[in-house]
Structures are given as structure tokens and as C-alpha cells.
Nucleic acid binder design. Sequence first.
DNA 1: AAGATTTTAGTAACCGATTAAGTTATCGTT
DNA 2: AACGATAACTTAATCGGTTACTAAAATCTT
Lengths: 342, 342
Amino acid sequence: MKNKPIKLSDIAEKLNVSTVTVSKALRGHPDISQKTTKLIKETAEKIGYTPNFMARNLSSRKSNTIGVIVPKIAHFFFGAIIESIYDIAFRNNYEIILTVSQENEKREKKHIQTLLSMKVDGIIISISQETKDYSIFDAVKARGVPIVFMDRIPAIPDVDTVSVNDRLGAFMAIEHLIKLGHTRIGHFAGYSEINIGKERYLGFEDAMNKYNIPINPDWICHGGFGEKAGYDSFIKLYQKNSLPDVIFTVTYPVALGIYMAASELGLKIPDDIDVICFGNAKVMKFFAPPLSCVDQPTELIAEKSMKLLLNKINNPDDKSVNEVEIPTDLVLRGTCRTFNRK
Amino acid sequence: MKNKPIKLSDIAEKLNVSTVTVSKALRGHPDISQKTTKLIKETAEKIGYTPNFMARNLSSRKSNTIGVIVPKIAHFFFGAIIESIYDIAFRNNYEIILTVSQENEKREKKHIQTLLSMKVDGIIISISQETKDYSIFDAVKARGVPIVFMDRIPAIPDVDTVSVNDRLGAFMAIEHLIKLGHTRIGHFAGYSEINIGKERYLGFEDAMNKYNIPINPDWICHGGFGEKAGYDSFIKLYQKNSLPDVIFTVTYPVALGIYMAASELGLKIPDDIDVICFGNAKVMKFFAPPLSCVDQPTELIAEKSMKLLLNKINNPDDKSVNEVEIPTDLVLRGTCRTFNRK
DNA sequence: AAGATTTTAGTAACCGATTAAGTTATCGTT
DNA sequence: AACGATAACTTAATCGGTTACTAAAATCTT
């Protein structure tokens, strides 16, 4: 009962022309006359022909496909970015192969290999929080496959990147806290091996230094970019009886972890502990209290990344290195609005 | 500077065997002796060979790939499901091609064709809210490609489906409201053409009928499953000065729309207007007030869908029709906890 | 020890397209 | 009228594998 898919040769036979003629006609190649092209296109449409993706890509050696690797999906930041990427890809007639590393370096590596074996035309990646071995990225470059690093960027030279102004964004947040009168400021910093961890910490440090506020190492907690990290760090500080007045978190999920821990511990935000995070999400404004944050414009990140990548794909000889930096905004909602010195 | 990817014949030449031998060895075919197999596998590893996905799939006529189509990504429900699907796929050595219809029937159709042309081994789909023409799904079936409908299911016979108990879930929610003393109950119902819209409405109706509470047609609002629908409907009711006491929404985003509208209008949830929705999300518990809902176990939905699909892929002769139904739970948080008759 | 089997490997054909390199017929030039 | 140029197709080769057959060597049978 299995309908065999229609192929080029079916159309060719029917119209008594060669398969090459059909192939060319369908792609609008000037070799073929208007008349024949029209005829072929019409019959192709009529009998419902769709080209075999594999065959086409194998012989043409390109896939019109972009590979995307992200650490997570079910988090607002990546979800929003992915949605935008899909949208842009669709409009440009590209397919997306999305893979998820689950913050796991080995998976990430395997995905990259898969994408290469699929002959994707380019790759957009936000690396996992635990990725330490960057040699795989050299392999990608060696293959001549354009790659754009987005948001989470490894420290390697000469790569195209799109990120937000992490350092300044963090600085602005901390400066705001200080101006509110805060001095006992903590920072849940993720991992410092990776740019977003490092830069955001640096921004934090910049502000603390500028206003001559000592940094309490107890309050600088590392551990990851997810909820668990925020939750665990908070619980630990609480148990050590060493909570700061306010915590700046490296990501939104980390802040979520704090909300979770605080609610379990019966601590009130923002009275007992205040929170501000890097990264925005639509739902924050409905939180109790609405969470203030440093806004990262996801759509813009996606757009710039895609533009950069498509540009590299279409101009293979373009060896330029582009490091796009997107500005951030401080969005003040219910948290970190005021501070009453205890 | 472009490293040519290594191919089968490179290994074959190096070891002085035929490409077929290499191909077989790498796939562990019994034709080849242990010794040669080991040797081939080792050198393949050493020189970093990865098979060309396109070539392999073209000649073998299968792809070890599953196509997934969802209406949205950046919404908790789908995000969570997709994440689980990716996880299961990875563990089973399948690739996922994820596409996003953006609630658009034409895109959805195009994606299906693309997936077919990519020769995916099977498809998991949650159809768009506006999909009316189901003929494309027959085409998929005719091709012999297994397809599993998940959550959003078209009304066509003999298809494999995985859904939650929409009707009962809605019934339980409404019954709870009624037992709280509510009678002025509204329902933002999405579209009734599609199962989740229809069934959840039916559950609503069941409860209203059981307790002999008249349904006010003004309070049954249709329009979609997204935030905009919730927002628009709420504003409209407000302007008509005809708000119910409590609204049951067909999805979580619709409830979000209400939160948004209510906050703009200065109405307090749950005092001025109360809300409960179908569909859960981790962040709801941090809302002001924490949103009560009917929980849909996303992980289970993903798991059942994948299991069903993989089963069909591995047993092509299995013509059974499976309709998996997953139970739901009422999760009470800050909304719809009590009701003081006005 | 000869024939039957099994092991192990190789040959040829093919998957469904695309690209490169012909082949005619037609046309314009001078 | 002879020549090169152009238009419109076709033929052959190729992309990098896999499958179906075939063949030689090794092992087993009786």
C-alpha cells in the first residue's frame, strides 16, 4: 500500500525528456526553454513531486541547512532565540537542524559531528556550560564550515561571535544596586571558564571596585547556569547563615532557583533577600515579586547570528572575523527597587 | 585550507580492501572477520572518519531520523515536550528534525513535505491551531511513514495519538470551581475545531450541566491558544462590562494573556477576577498569585509518543491503531483557592 | 579425500539527484 | 555561403555510500 515517492525520472519519462532537463527546469536553469520549463513545472506540481533531499544534497554538495546547537530548550532565553532562528531560516528557505547538548560536552561534540556529517552549510552554537575542549571547533573551521558562536562563547581566536554586552550589563545592574544603598551584594556567577560567567563577573567587579565596596568571596557562588545551581547555592549560604542582602544572578534560571529556595525557606523576596538577574523573560512581570533583570534582546541575537552566518555561507571567501555585541538594558520591576538598610 | 572530509574509500585504499568491506566492517556486519573489523574500526577512528549522512541515507533508504512539528517552541508546554523528545531520541540514537509551524497551516504543510523529502523514519506532530485540511496526513500515511499525533489531534480515523484526558481534566477543574461556590464561570476556549478546544469545552460543559449551572454564551470566548487570545478576549469582556467571576482557560498562554490584561486594567487576581488554566509550567508557582492549573505531564506525553512511534518504525507491519490517553491532575496554587460570593 | 558448507571478501548495480561536457539545430554575420 | 555563436537538450560521470550477488579460501562432513 506504500506509495512510492515520485522521482525526477518519472516526470522525465512521462514527458519524454531527460532527467537532467527536468532537474534543470525545476531549478529554473536558463538552459531550458520557457515553454518546457513551464510544462515540466506544471506536471511536477500535478503529480506531486518533491525532490529527494538526500539525493539533492549528496550530488550538489550543499544542503541549505543550518545546524543549531543549544544547551537547553525549555528555558525562555533559548526557546525565544530558537523560535526566531526558525523564523528567519524559514523566510530564507533554509532548514534548521536543532540539537540539544543538555549542558553536556560529550553530547555537544557528537552533535557537531552529526551536523558535519549532514553537511550543514553552517552552524550556530551556544556552547554547554561544561565545554572545555575547544579543539572540535578547530575541526569545524578546518572543514570550512562557517560557525557562529552565540551568547556562550569559547575563548578561541578568530571566530564569529554574537553576544550581548555582558560586562556592561552586569555593571549597570550592580551600579544600580549600589546606588540603592546596597553594599552586601552577592553574585551567583555560574562558571567563570565561559564568557558569560567571566564577563558578567567582571562587570560585577567593575562596579564594586568603582564604588570601593569590598567583595565578600563567600557571596560569590559558582556552580552552573541552571535552577539547581541557584537553588543549591542559596541553600548553602542560608545554612552557613551568611546571606547577602541582594544577589545578582548570572542567568534567569539561577534566579528561579533562588525564588524556589527562598519560598521553601520561608524567606520573602525582596524584603529578606533581594534578587536581580541577567536575562529577561516574558513571565517575570507576573512573578511575586516581579523580577528585575538585565534584558538580553533575544530576537536581535538570533537575527544577528543568522545574518552573520548566512553572509559567511554566501561569501565563502570572506575571511573577516566579526564580533557582534548587542547592548543590554536594565529592566526594573518588583525586585531591587528600593533598599531599607537593616 | 579546506580539509576534505574522509570517506570510505580513503580507508579502503589505505588498508587495501574494498569499500564494501569497510562499509560492512564499520556497521559490524558478520561478513567481515573480527580481525579485519577491528583493524578497520581502529583506523577509521584514528583518521577521524564520519560517514556522510546523505550518502548513507540515500543508499539505505532510511535515515534514523524523526521529524517533529510543533506550533510553537517558546512556550513551556512545547519546550518541555521537545526537550524530552530530544533526550529520548538521543538515547535511541535517532536524530530529530524539529520544525515549527508558528500556528500556520501552510507552513505546517510545507514542513511535512520537507520532512518527507528528508526521508524521516517517522513523524510526531502537534497540529497548528488553524489547520483545517487534513488531506496532507493521508498523504503521509499513504507514503507508509508512521505518524503520531500528540496533544493537538485532528479528527481523522485510524491514527496513532497521544493526548491527555482533556475532557476529564477540564471537568475536574470546573467541578472544583463549582464546589467553591462559583456559578459565574467563563471559559476561554481556543478553537473548537481541534480536539483540545473541543474536549476541554466538553469537560467544562459536563461539569456545568451536572450541577445545573447555566452557561453564559458571552463568557465562552474563542480565538486561539496564545497569549493574544487571552488578552483580547479579556479586554473585550471588560469593555462590555460583562466579566465572570472566574475564567477557565484552554491553555497556559491564554491565562498569561489574562494576567497581562488584568494587570493593565488594574484588576486584582484572584479578588476581582480568578483564573485557572489547562496546562502546567514550572514558573507558575512564582506568579502573583501562583496560578492553579490542570497538569499535563509533558515528560510522559513525550515518552509515550516516542515509544509509540519507535514501535511503529521498528514494526512496519504493525497496523494497530493506538490512542494513548494520559491522566491529568488538578494542581491548586494561589488562584481558585476560595471564593467569597460578592 | 572429495564434496558440501561456511567464512570472508570482492564486483557490479543502484539510491536520486547534480554537474560537466558534449550534441544538434537555429540564427546572425559578413 | 561558410563560420562562429547561441539556444535547448542529452549523455556520461559523480556524490559517498549500501545492497544483492558472486567468488575464493577455509572448514566441516562422512
